[in-house]
Simulated assay, not measured.
Amino acid sequence: MTTPVFRFAPSPNGQLHLGHALSAILNFEAARAAGGRFLLRIEDIDRARCTPELEAGIFTDLAWLGLHWETPVRRQSDHFGDYRTALDRLTALGLVYPAYLTRAEIAGAVARAEAAGKLWPRDPDGAPLYPGDAAVLGPEALHQRIAASTGHALRLDMKKALRVAGGPLFWEETGAGPDGERGRIAADPARWGDVVLARKDTPTSYHLSVVIDDATQGVTHVMRGQDLFQATAVHRLLQQLLDLPRPVYHHHRLVLDETGRKLSKSRGDTALGALRESGASPDDIRRMIGL
């Protein structure tokens, strides 16, 4: 019988808040109830924003909550080679292409199209789908960028990837999606368009690294917030293309502020460290997140 493996995987690019506390505690308690393992993973692929000080704060906050985890802790920044190997495999299948448009050029192309009355397709998070280099730059300008080895991102050719994957994709959901979806969920990665797999300043992406990490660490149960429910479709596609195991997914409710907005590290919402310094106890945190 396979031992259940759960994980909590924060990014050290800000302080943990109440939403992180909910996810960490749910994973820890689910692992304990199942007689399984609880792992902590540091998702620090963004080397510009992630710092050792913030990582240390994560350890402090989680220990204060009464959580403990296996060591050593996996840090994504130590495993860029693993993601490169996976990227090379997808490239060998003809599924990866260089994308030269800047964010400003993408925004400009979308703005012009919408000003002309065109309804631009957007992914489940609301970001516009990639318009394609040639369509925006034209063949000559694109050729010049390629010849000049201009910095670029690497994107997944979604149409080709779906053909290679073959057949319908799905995942088992034991939690619930934003609209209450549960059970066997049909995955529709096409809604995300040609997702980024690596950037010029970051040799991997969240989508690619998370599926490699989960497979490498033997994660059997991925328990995370509902805001990542739709992204599971992309993860299932990458798992299929790379012959990786399929975990069971459980998307839990989010902790929202008084306006119904999801908490954000970038705004310092309800940081656990600040709450601790103000006199809150771990039991207070549990009450605040509805446990």
Rank of each mutant, 00 (worst) to 15 (best):
G14E: 04
L18N: 14
L18A: 14
F28V: 01
F28N: 01
E29K: 07
A30Y: 07
F38A: 07
L39W: 03
I42G: 00
I45L: 15
D46F: 06
T51L: 06
E53W: 06
E53D: 08
T60Q: 13
L62F: 12
W64G: 00
H68T: 05
W69Y: 10
E70G: 13
P72V: 14
R74M: 14
R75L: 03
R75F: 14
S77F: 03
F80Y: 15
D82T: 08
D88F: 00
L90H: 09
G94A: 05
L95P: 04
V96W: 07
R103C: 11
A109I: 00
K118A: 15
K118M: 15
R122F: 07
R122L: 10
P124E: 10
G126I: 08
L137G: 01
G138R: 01
P139N: 09
P139T: 12
I146K: 15
G151M: 11
G151S: 15
A153Y: 01
R155S: 02
M158D: 10
M158A: 05
K159R: 11
K160Q: 04
A161Q: 06
L162C: 08
P168S: 11
P168G: 06
L169N: 13
F170L: 05
E172W: 08
E173C: 15
G177F: 02
R182I: 11
D188A: 10
P189S: 10
R191E: 10
D194R: 09
V196E: 07
V196F: 04
L197M: 12
R199A: 06
T204V: 05
L208D: 09
S209Y: 06
D214E: 15
Q217V: 05
V219C: 01
G225N: 11
G225R: 03
L228N: 11
L238K: 02
L238I: 02
L242F: 03
P245L: 07
H250I: 01
V255I: 13
D257C: 12
G273Y: 03
A274T: 12
S278F: 01
G279H: 02
S281I: 09
D284L: 09
D284V: 05
R286V: 00
L291W: 08
